[in-house]
């Protein structure tokens, strides 16, 4: 199949959902063309817009991978949000407890703290699945809520910043801040690491034996089992890996953006990450590209809300519609 033929259903899906949403927007009495212009071009008009887009691109790519890696093994990880928050807590804990260490030790410690905490948050549902066969959809979701209250506890507990109005911890040590690539507007170097992780995941799942076992498990667990792959162990591994990647996203929010732990940092990255993962159909190579596209839409959406008073949720629905149409294109092709 040629590339053009591959991309065509996606293009049609995007156009169809924009048309559907456009009809609704114009019925509400808004200017559709101005709205779409804002959504599509805000990212490219100013340097600030572009950097905003890249800053969204980082957590979106990582959270999408946190969903697709388990999906490759046939498991649904809906706990990316909790794993990201756990990662943020782990990173902040390291950065606050060892605030005086020099950057060369503290920075890796902060990042590692996030990755390990995220992996642990993925490990518990994985263990429950392995040991008791409990549906991972439920446990990963429930762990989001547990993380939500845990982050509230940390942000209002002993590390709380009394000067801030919103639940927030104090700043992490200077050594834990990710170096900046561009200072004004600020872009932290986490983006390099995020891209490297995305490439690494892609190579792992498409070019290595371990990754092949993972994909085989997802494609047909019975056949994989017959060929001697321990499928249950693959489930566990995939959920831990997913958790670690989501934890990294949390660490970046702390070490790169805020330099502290803030309640609400998870935004709606979980849902967007899952939408990206599903639009990519679990193909890790496609994830960064789809994530960039969604980041563009998201930055455009908040600009649209500011200037035209159209709620950002409008764009979220467009994204969900794109997903639905992409899924539908499968059915059309099957017939």
């Amino acid at each position: 199949m040629t590339i053009a033929k591959k991309i065509l259903p996606y293009l049609l899906a995007v156009v169809a959902s924009f048309v559907a949403a456009g009809i609704f927007i114009s019925l509400m009495g808004f200017d559709v063309f101005k709205a779409y212009q804002t959504i599509l071009f805000t990212s490219f008009r100013t340097p600030n817009g572009f950097i905003q887009t890249l800053l969204k691109f980082i957590p979106l790519t990582l959270l999408a991978l946190a969903f697709t890696i388990p999906l490759n093994a046939g498991k649904f990880n809906i706990g990316g949000e909790g794993q990201m928050m756990a990662g943020g807590i782990g990173a902040a804990a390291m950065g606050i407890m060892f605030a005086d260490l020099p950057a060369i030790i503290l920075l890796p410690l902060v990042i590692l703290g996030g990755v390990v905490a995220g992996a642990l948050w993925g490990l518990v549902p994985a263990w429950l699945l392995y040991k008791f066969n409990i549906n991972e959809i439920l446990t990963t979701v429930l762990f989001n809520f547990i993380a939500l209250f845990l982050i509230d506890y940390v942000c209002t507990g002993p590390w709380r910043d009394p000067a801030a109005g919103h639940p927030t911890t104090v700043l992490i040590g200077r050594g834990g801040w990710l170096p900046m690539l561009v200072n004004n507007p600020p872009l932290h170097s986490g983006i390099i690491l995020a891209v490297l992780v995305a490439i690494g995941v892609y190579i792992y799942t498409s070019r290595t034996t371990g990754g092949f076992e993972l994909i085989a498990t997802g494609a047909n667990p019975r056949a994989a089992g017959v060929f001697g792959i321990n499928t249950r162990r693959m489930f566990v591994l995939s959920l831990i890996l997913g958790g670690a990647v989501a934890g990294l996203a949390g660490a970046f929010e702390v070490a790169g953006n805020q330099h502290r732990l803030i309640e609400g940092m998870q935004s709606n990255f979980l849902q967007l990450g899952m939408i990206i993962g599903l639009i990519s159909r679990g193909n890790n190579g496609a994830v960064p590209f789809v994530a960039f596209m969604i980041a563009v839409l998201e930055v455009g959406a908040s600009a649209m809300q500011r200037t035209m008073m159209i709620p950002v949720e409008m764009v979220f629905i467009v994204e969900a519609l794109i997903l639905l149409f992409v899924l539908l294109s499968d059915v059309v092709r099957r017939k």
Binding site: M274, E313, F316, E319, A320, L327, V331
Partner: peptide, 27 residues
């Protein structure tokens, strides 16, 4: 009717519901 994956469709409907529920009161 279309025989699509139940979890994937369920999640898509979850997203749409999430968006619609906040969009409507705001609009």
């Amino acid at each position: 009717s279309l025989k699509m994956n139940q979890f994937v469709i369920g999640l898509s409907l979850f997203f749409i519901g999430l968006g619609v529920s906040t969009l409507l009161p705001k609009l």
